[in-house]
Design a protein around this nucleic acid. Structure first.
Lengths: 243, 243
DNA sequence: ATATCTTAGTGTCAGTACAACACTAAGTAA
DNA sequence: TTACTTAGTGTTGTACTGACACTAAGATAT
């Protein structure tokens, strides 16, 4: 009657390539011997089971480390997906069988989103091909991963309204145009340049450097950095609400 | 190596008694025959295991229905707690044994918060005593439930900034003073009466009725209602952010 | 060297929301 | 009739917002 099940984590890994917001996907194919099933390869988010003695955060960080080689990545749990139907589509069942899992066992997965400032990732992860895809161009994913991605986007937008996390997608020195573009991509909205800069200039933790962009074929922009210290000191919790 | 575990839900049920924000707790005692362990009774949140074929939302709603008799309660998942250590305190282990569970099995629990507009709840749930406790007066709870409660409060405050959920704690007709008090309790802040009322008056979905409070020994206040319909139509997504 | 191209960077004005603040009005109870 | 309690209201100064267009700086091409 009560539920014994597997627990997994799925990481929705976001990156920014200077132009668009991307999400990291891994290819899903059948192993050679199972391929009589005529399985059309597709893509999924990066997920894995949680080991017996590790926390879910550790499991998520493990995935991130394996793919990026980095271990201090911004990472946050956003929602858990545990519908008993979530892995029952025939294609998903076939794939689970092919990798030797019992496809009848329910799997609850905890969704995490991660923001990474690098584009450099492993070419393969667990033997599976890895690629960045612009969020707006993601097609049909395996399992319930389209739903998980949608929820991750909602969570990240929500988070972004209250926490200075846009910087997590940028190198430590960045231009205001880059920063603005990150916000535009994530909120899927155009922002006014002057108003944006005025707003940023009030936030003392975005600090101008005496340094300029190099190697651009036009007027080079000033570089800025984000100071977590200054943020922690000066930030007085934007307190507004609707009723 | 991989984790086979139980999945449970814990509901942080909030209520408002006209004065304070309360949370519903259930008493934890040992059954007669186990009581040689000298177990000091304490309190926990309302939680239960998820059945094999039900969704976690169904499991959470089941708890709410059993306790309140209501089935359309505001309910939302906020965080999952799956630390392998979370149930390993001796007291928790003893209790788990006493009710016949294998205390070595890891339990991941999905935290939900619920807002109920009634104070009327079952006196007992699953044979356990039930009571409302003001959130600020909650002592040490069983398991990791203090942590879960803390996170629930953070989540509800966050949610409240963007969604009109204060009404879920009030009867369908309410006064502005009651509404203001709900916000003050949850945000743990004092609000200016005139400024609050000006703000509410801009929100067209808080609708004044031609009806007044009855039975109060002072000037009776006008009653208002919340219209979800009007909210859905008029609400243009308060869009502000920090960088 | 000059012209062209591209992005960087800046200020004003009108409108809206905010915080801070104190008194009168309406009903009940004694 | 008086006392008590909570309801209900308006103004002013300040801060932020959205809308909006031009000059500056550097690289490249001729």
């Amino acid at each position: 009657m009560e539920l014994s099940s597997y627990i997994s984590v799925d990481c929705v890994i976001f990156g920014y390539d200077g132009e668009k917001l991307n999400v990291l996907l891994v290819k899903r194919t059948l192993s050679e011997e199972s391929n009589h099933l005529n399985f059309e390869p597709d893509w999924t988010l990066t997920g894995n089971h949680v080991y017996q003695d590790e926390t879910i955060e550790t499991a998520a960080n493990r995935i991130l480390f394996e793919i990026t080689g980095l271990s201090d990545i911004f990472l946050e749990q956003f929602k858990t997906f545990a519908d008993p139907q979530r892995l029952l589509k025939p294609k998903d069942q076939n794939w689970l069988k092919s990798i030797g899992r019992n496809p009848a066992i329910r799997v609850a997965t905890i969704g995490f989103f991660a923001l990474v400032a690098t584009q450099k990732v492993a070419l393969k992860w667990m033997g599976r091909e890895v690629k960045w895809v612009p969020v707006k161009e993601v097609g049909t994913l395996g399992f319930d991963h389209n739903q998980i991605l949608e929820e991750a986007l909602i969570a990240i937008r929500q988070k972004m309204k209250h926490e200075p996390i846009g910087f997590e997608l940028l190198p430590s020195k960045f231009t205001l145009t880059q920063l603005q573009n990150v916000y535009e991509q994530i909120f899927d909205a155009e922002l006014d340049k002057r108003n944006f800069r005025r707003k940023v200039s009030r936030m003392k933790y975005v600090i101008p450097l005496n340094e300029k962009q190099k190697g651009v074929p036009h007027k080079p922009a000033r570089l800025y950095m984000f100071s977590r210290e200054v943020f922690d000191i000066t930030n007085q919790e934007l307190f507004d609400f609707i009723v």
